[in-house]
């Protein structure tokens, strides 16, 4: 049974009410002024990967529509992100934000430090848009309905709590207030118009839920990067009596480690964050690609096995 437009719109709003990432603990702490400079930096550096995926998914959406009017409207989003000329657009503004919070522009652009879980979440978004039809793809973009609200809160919070981020750094947030409002209004009207049957409405609601989950996962990963790992109290680190390999012995198992593992675990002092450990190792081995994500993957695995435990 298809519902009336008002009831359908209420369902979509309800998804945002319950699942939009403005309620994620990390965002709550950001907006309350409780994040450290290091946490802000991690968030900006990780979220840049999401920003780079947006024009890709919008390009995919363009390929799904045979309607010139739709494409004329939608292509505007790509222009907003990429700009009409070098030095313009949302991606550029984000990189300026990165510079103002103290990050190296080249490092952020290289995507070298993208957390595996952030990469997975953002790639899932592009994949969702690729695999689903136009209706679901557009419905998944309706998180923009929450975006202009969150941007207002964020702007106020940054001005109040993080005065070290200057006006140029805030340009991205400022531009999104109006862009997101316009885009979501158009997108919502299009979805309400084109989801004719109950089944189509259900798919739109599910796609929006999925997108909310992706944004949530991104922040989960950022939060996790700030846990402080240390060797678990239950673990005994020792050299193997036969071949000298570093071995972590636990109540029910023993885990053999290679030299990289030894180096990572030695850096886990319970004071430094996982993010700091990963960056330190990457700096120590500039010749090796992919050190940072590898360190995060390794620490996740060690935590699962009980070799490492973390506190916030």
């Amino acid at each position: 049974m298809s519902q009336g437009r008002a009831a359908f719109e209420a369902r979509l709003q309800d998804v945002l009410e319950r699942r939009y990432h403005d309620k994620h603990p990390f965002n709550l702490r950001m907006h309350q002024g409780l994040l450290s400079r290091e946490e802000i930096q991690t968030w900006v550096r990780q979220r840049y990967y999401y920003q780079t995926r947006i024009p890709l998914k919008d390009s995919v959406i363009l390929t799904k529509s045979g309607d010139p009017a739709f494409r004329r409207e939608w292509v505007q989003r790509i222009h907003d992100h990429d700009g009409r000329a070098p030095g313009e657009g949302g991606l550029e503004k984000w990189l300026r934000l990165a510079e103002t919070v103290g990050l190296d522009r080249g490092d952020v652009e290289s995507l070298a430090g993208v957390l595996p879980a952030v990469r997975d979440a953002c790639d899932d978004y592009v994949r969702l848009v690729e695999e689903r039809d136009l209706l679901e793809a557009v419905a998944s973009s309706l998180t923009e309905m929450g975006a202009h609200r969150i941007m207002r809160v964020r702007l106020a919070a940054f001005e109040k709590h993080y005065p070290w981020v200057d006006e140029e750094g805030l340009a991205y947030f400022r531009s999104r207030v109006s862009q997101a409002a316009r885009d979501s209004e158009w997108g919502l009207a299009w979805v309400l118009e084109n989801a004719a049957t109950g089944e189509e409405q259900d798919r739109c609601v599910a796609a929006l839920e999925k997108k909310c989950e992706i944004l949530w996962r991104l922040l989960d990963a950022v939060e996790l990067a700030h846990r402080k790992p240390r060797i678990a109290s239950a673990a005994q680190l020792r050299n193997d009596p036969k071949d000298g390999a570093l071995t972590a012995v636990l109540p029910e198992r023993a885990v053999r480690l290679n030299e990289s593992g030894r180096e990572i675990l030695e850096a886990c002092d319970g004071e430094r964050t996982a993010d700091a450990v990963a960056r330190e190792l990457a700096a120590r081995h500039p010749e090796v690609p992919g050190v940072e994500p590898d360190v995060h993957t390794f620490l996740g695995e060690m935590e699962r096995l009980g070799v490492v435990e973390s506190r916030r």
Partner: peptide, 8 residues
């Protein structure tokens, strides 16, 4: 036993 490789 430890010389032989026993850990636990």
């Amino acid at each position: 036993a430890a010389e032989l490789g026993v850990l636990h």
